[in-house]
């Protein structure tokens, strides 16, 4: 087996006296989708922030393709890890296209002088970035609204735009923080299909989600975080059947959950 594309080794994060994460490890293989679930306050977003350089882990390491990630979000993005945010954080008064172009920033090389004089190579680079941005907008299904201000988009479209912006950085790994929060079943289904298509591009994906149905039908591998510690990891089947998960996360009698999951499975399998 090849080395995982993204690897977290015993990551701990301590804020003052509070231990938010305790020896959390995660392996993400290329072209896979890994889900991260856990109750509110379990440390999922903190873990994401450690993966993207927003926080520097108190102990432990994060490696991308075997190399330790730098401790600066901008450099982490340049290295190939992109993310979306739990609460949508677009640049609200930039247009849809400009938001995606901003994602291209890290892959463009025009310095201050080129930006000042707008020479031929500058214009080529700019045109290429625009083409790529339009391609990505079409990919997420926002091809027709590129000149809208992003703040005017409907909620679901804003989520998709955030994904397009993250994809514009040409990531090897995409981290999605609750991509279906606040979505209705149709939108959730569209999001699932979109994530599958992203995986098919060869990008590995980590998803935080509350919606267990969504996670179990989407992911190749699921990790469960409870109170900052990794409780269980494994395939959806393994995790789903684990009584500790059921107890800690779902808080319902196993039979009931089993029935619910059964129903979901029957509904989903083609």
């Amino acid at each position: 087996m090849s080395t995982p594309v993204l690897q977290a080794r015993d990551v701990s994060m301590v804020f003052g006296g509070l231990t938010a994460l305790k020896n959390v490890s995660l392996n993400l293989d290329e072209g896979k989708i890994v889900g991260l679930i856990g109750p509110n306050g379990a440390g999922k977003t903190t873990f994401f922030n450690c993966l993207t350089g927003l926080y520097t882990p108190t102990t432990g390491q994060v490696l991308l393709k075997g190399a330790v990630l730098p401790g600066d979000p901008a450099e982490v993005t340049a290295a190939g890890v992109a993310r979306t945010f739990q609460n949508i954080r677009l640049f609200p008064s930039m247009t849809v296209l400009e938001n995606v172009l901003l994602g291209r920033h890290v892959r463009m090389r025009q310095g201050p002088l080129a930006s000042l004089f707008h020479g031929p190579s500058f214009r080529r680079g700019e045109a290429a970035a625009r083409d790529r941005a339009r391609e990505l907008l079409a990919f997420v299904g926002l091809g027709k609204v590129e000149d809208e201000l992003s703040r005017n988009l409907p909620y679901g479209d804003q989520r998709r735009l955030e994904i397009a912006r993250a994809l514009a950085t040409d990531p090897a790994v995409l981290l999605l923080d609750e991509p279906t929060a606040g979505m209705n079943p149709q939108e959730t289904e569209a999001a699932r299909q979109l994530i599958f298509r992203i995986r098919d591009l060869g990008i590995s994906v980590v998803v935080i989600e509350h919606d267990t149905k969504f996670i179990f039908t989407l992911c190749d591998q699921v990790s469960v975080l409870v109170q900052g510690e990794l409780l269980v990891e494994g395939t959806p089947d393994v995790v789903r059947g684990d009584p500790r998960v059921v107890e800690a996360y779902l808080g319902k009698p196993p039979e009931e959950v089993e029935a619910e999951l059964q129903a979901v499975q029957e509904g989903e399998t083609p």
Binding site: D72, P73, A78, M94, H105, R165
Partner: peptide, 19 residues
Amino acid sequence: GRAWIAIREDEDVARAMGV
């Protein structure tokens, strides 16, 4: 210029996007 505007709009996200 786009990066400047992004910084104005949301500096943390701009940084997270590689600016």
